[in-house]
Write a protein that binds this DNA or RNA. Structure first.
Length: 116
DNA sequence: CAGCTGACAATAA
DNA sequence: GTTATTGCCAGCT
């Protein structure tokens, strides 16, 4: 069905829905789209994001909580500053506190955990 | 025109 | 338990 709509548009739409002060992982987004194996495509969508600043790609991070190593946006650490500026807490490990900031899809979609 | 690479994650061994 | 490979869509060479 919506798979015809293309994968990127869906990624952009979902990422754009990430609330301020919250973060999501590539795998999480891919999983929401019904493609748990397309995590790379999510990242690739960011690489070619035609939306630019309207695309909070800085809110999209690795599953471990670290920022994308290849995140090129001018100067290193920019992503971290953007997140901190939104109220995201960073651990001393240089990772985002996923437990506290990993984005969860509204209360309407409680859990998409496999097998439940 | 066709093939390879690419901001990751999950499954298999 | 860890390490290696596969899967995916689109853009670029």
């Amino acid at each position: 069905m919506r798979r015809q709509a293309g994968f990127f548009p869906r990624v952009y739409d979902l990422v754009a829905r990430i609330p301020r002060g919250r973060v999501a992982t590539y795998g999480q987004i891919a999983r929401m789209l019904g493609a748990p194996r397309s995590a790379r495509i999510v990242g690739w969508a960011m690489h070619g994001n035609p939306h630019g600043r309207h695309m909070p790609c800085h809110r999209v991070i690795q599953q471990g909580g670290s920022c994308s190593p290849n995140y090129r946006v001018g100067d290193p650490g920019a992503q971290r500053r953007l997140l901190e500026r939104e109220g995201v807490r960073f651990l001393l490990d240089g990772r985002v506190d996923m437990q506290a900031h990993q984005w969860q899809p509204g209360p309407e979609v409680p859990r998409r955990r496999r097998g439940e």
